[in-house]
């Protein structure tokens, strides 16, 4: 019985962790290029609302509709990221303020809510959603069956993306250049690397990933649209990048750990176990983020931190 609860928590932790993995990976790539993007929450909401719109209004087979919805969510994320990239890279607005502006523009009382109203998709159940796949026919294996072999395509895709980003960062030449741009843009420029092209590209890729993270909410986690449904996950994703020390492998672990914190309350509640008030469980991921951020900034951890040296600083050749 107890092991059942543990498995239920883990399964649900992977579900809650997946949007964090996706949005976190995107933010990691942008930050590796030196661009801090605080617009993640807004980009995720735009991804969520566009994905849901496309999945509700397009006709065709479920697979085709879902594919289109996923592509649309990436497009919405890229569009938001483009605003941030233009403001912060090209005309050098303070990256913190520019990112916040994107979140306010697209956020809970912004464009995502507006589009939800205009498209009239609020409060209705989704017509299509990603369901668990019986991978290799192994879903009935004890313990690992439900955890590893019965996830939806989105989760498997996120695992592939993690491996792809790891390979890209540490095993390819553009990945090396990306790290160089983040650490020392002047040196990278001197080598002939187009600094701002790298920053634009990775900020936009980050937007696409955040859009995907948002789409996971409306296409898999709970197929319905309500204003502000990402409920702070975008912010946790940004924090994750910091205490994963800008490493994709640690980011995945962190995302699932925070998935556990998010999953604990709902899982216990559906089983009628109410030791602590539900607000405590709701606040838990945010409290743990504060604690994790504090722990990651102690001197012990600081020696291991890989903060890109140029993070948050616009690059201009003339002014060095």
């Amino acid at each position: 019985m107890n092991s059942n609860i543990v498995i239920a928590v883990v399964v649900s932790a992977i579900a809650f962790g997946t949007p964090l993995v996706l949005a976190g990976l995107g933010e990691l790539l942008a930050e590796r290029s030196g661009v801090l993007n605080l617009g993640v929450e807004g980009m995720m909401l735009m991804g969520a609302v566009t994905a849901f719109f496309v999945s509700q209004k397009t006709h065709g087979s479920t697979a085709l509709v879902l594919l289109l919805a996923v592509l649309a969510s990436m497009g919405a994320g890229v569009a938001m990221a483009l605003i941030h990239a233009f403001l912060s890279i090209t005309i050098r607005v303070n990256q913190i303020v520019s990112g916040l502006a994107v979140t306010i523009f697209a956020g809970i009382i912004g464009l995502s809510s507006y589009l939800g109203q205009v498209w009239n998709i609020g409060g209705v159940a989704g017509r299509h959603q990603f369901n668990g796949i019986d991978l290799f026919g192994l879903q009935n294996l004890p313990i690992v069956g439900p955890i590893i072999f019965n996830e939806d395509a989105f989760v498997y895709a996120s695992w592939v993306l993690v491996l792809a980003v790891l390979y890209y960062l540490y095993r390819t030449r553009p990945g090396l250049y990306l790290r160089a741009v983040g650490e020392n843009p002047a040196a990278a420029d001197a080598m002939g690397i187009n600094v701002n092209a790298y920053r634009y590209t990775h900020t936009l890729i980050g937007g696409a990933f955040a859009g995907l993270g948002g789409a996971y909410f409306t296409l898999a986690l709970a197929p319905i649209w309500t204003d502000g449904l990402t409920a702070g996950f975008g912010w946790i994703a940004i924090a994750l990048v910091i205490f994963a020390f800008w490493r994709p492998d640690l980011l995945v672990l962190g995302a699932y750990l925070f998935g556990v914190f998010s999953a604990l309350g709902p899982t216990l509640e559906t089983r009628g176990i109410t030791v602590l008030p539900s607000e405590f469980y709701s606040a838990l991921p945010f409290l743990m983020t504060v604690i994790a951020l504090a722990a990651a900034s102690t001197s012990w951890a600081n020696r291991r931190v890989g903060t890109p040296a140029s993070l948050g600083i616009p690059y201009t050749r003339e002014e060095g």
Binding site: I104, F105, G107, S113, Y114, Q117, D227
Partner: peptide, 8 residues
């Protein structure tokens, strides 16, 4: 005039 217009 949806609420989202204000934030937009």
């Amino acid at each position: 005039f949806p609420t989202g217009l204000v934030g937009t």
